[in-house]
């Protein structure tokens, strides 16, 4: 039984069937990649997991609880953190402040932030934030205004913001989309580092299958809204169905 169980999920937008009978199971402490060509329904699936969309039929269970009908912040409080395609950070805040907000959210819950206790007095949370920044090699940038950083650093910061919450499941939405080759490799290295340093469950949505081969423990190939195959990376590469789905791109 996986930590995330997607059962018979269907979603249509008017006449378009975006997802058809999607079944997916993500096991704890594995990296599970969901790949597929453009229009395969990857983003729709992800949005069903984080509370942005509600499937027409089917169920999405996280750790035995349904996430359907819950709002994004409630799903985050259940233990799912999300990294966006383009880094979403608090641009007006410093790097350190960006790190403190997820920590407050985790410790105090969605509704119970302190209005009079000083942020400066939170030594313990500050240490955790610094340790996390150290982990992603950003400690020296902690007082920087986060909007002025490079895209690669923003990606690192966003990742650190998600990881510092110690999520039970980390969702990544095309973390290398639109990146130059060098940035893509950096991101892959960062993810590998993260995976090596801690027990973590990750689900990565990715268009480019080469990105995930060295990273994923299991790969699900999605095409036209439905899973084609699910297997370990070695078996995916030469699979005839996958070749067919990606025909013209990597064939």
């Amino acid at each position: 039984m996986g930590i995330l169980e997607v059962k018979d999920v269907n979603k249509r937008f008017g006449g378009l069937k975006a997802l058809t009978d999607v079944n997916l199971s993500v096991t704890e402490n594995t990296v599970h990649a969901i790949i597929g060509p453009n229009g395969a329904g990857k983003s729709t699936l992800l949005n069903c997991l984080v509370g942005k969309l509600i499937p027409d039929t089917g169920s999405v269970m996280f750790d035995g609880h349904s996430v359907l009908g819950r709002k994004p912040f409630e799903i985050n409080q259940m233990g799912i953190s999300r990294v966006f395609q383009t880094p979403e950070i608090f641009g007006d805040l410093t790097v350190m402040e960006n790190m403190m907000i997820p920590l407050f959210a985790r410790r105090d819950g969605a509704y119970r932030l302190h209005a009079f206790r000083s942020v400066a007095s939170e030594a313990e949370l500050r240490e955790r934030a610094e340790a996390m920044l150290e982990d992603v090699n950003m400690l020296d940038k902690r007082n920087m205004h986060s909007a002025s950083m490079s895209r690669g650093d923003k990606r690192r910061l966003e990742m650190a913001m998600c990881l510092v919450q110690e999520p039970r499941l980390l969702l990544l939405d095309e973390p290398t989309a639109g990146m130059a080759r060098a940035d893509t490799n950096n991101t892959i290295d960062l993810l590998k580092e993260i995976k090596a340093k801690r027990d973590i469950t990750m689900a990565i949505i990715e268009h480019d299958m080469h990105v995930v081969f060295s990273l994923a423990d299991r790969i699900t190939v999605l095409a036209q809204g439905t899973p084609l195959v699910e297997d370990v990376p070695e078996n995916i590469k030469g699979h005839p169905k996958v070749q067919e789905a990606y025909l013209g791109e990597h064939a």
């Binding site: 912040f73 950070i89 608090f90 402040e97 959210a105």
Partner: peptide, 15 residues
């Protein structure tokens, strides 16, 4: 201040 900066990120951060 985070609300002014990026509400979307805030919702996905659990607040």
């Amino acid at each position: 201040r985070a609300i002014r900066s990026n509400q979307n990120r805030l919702y996905y951060t659990g607040l």
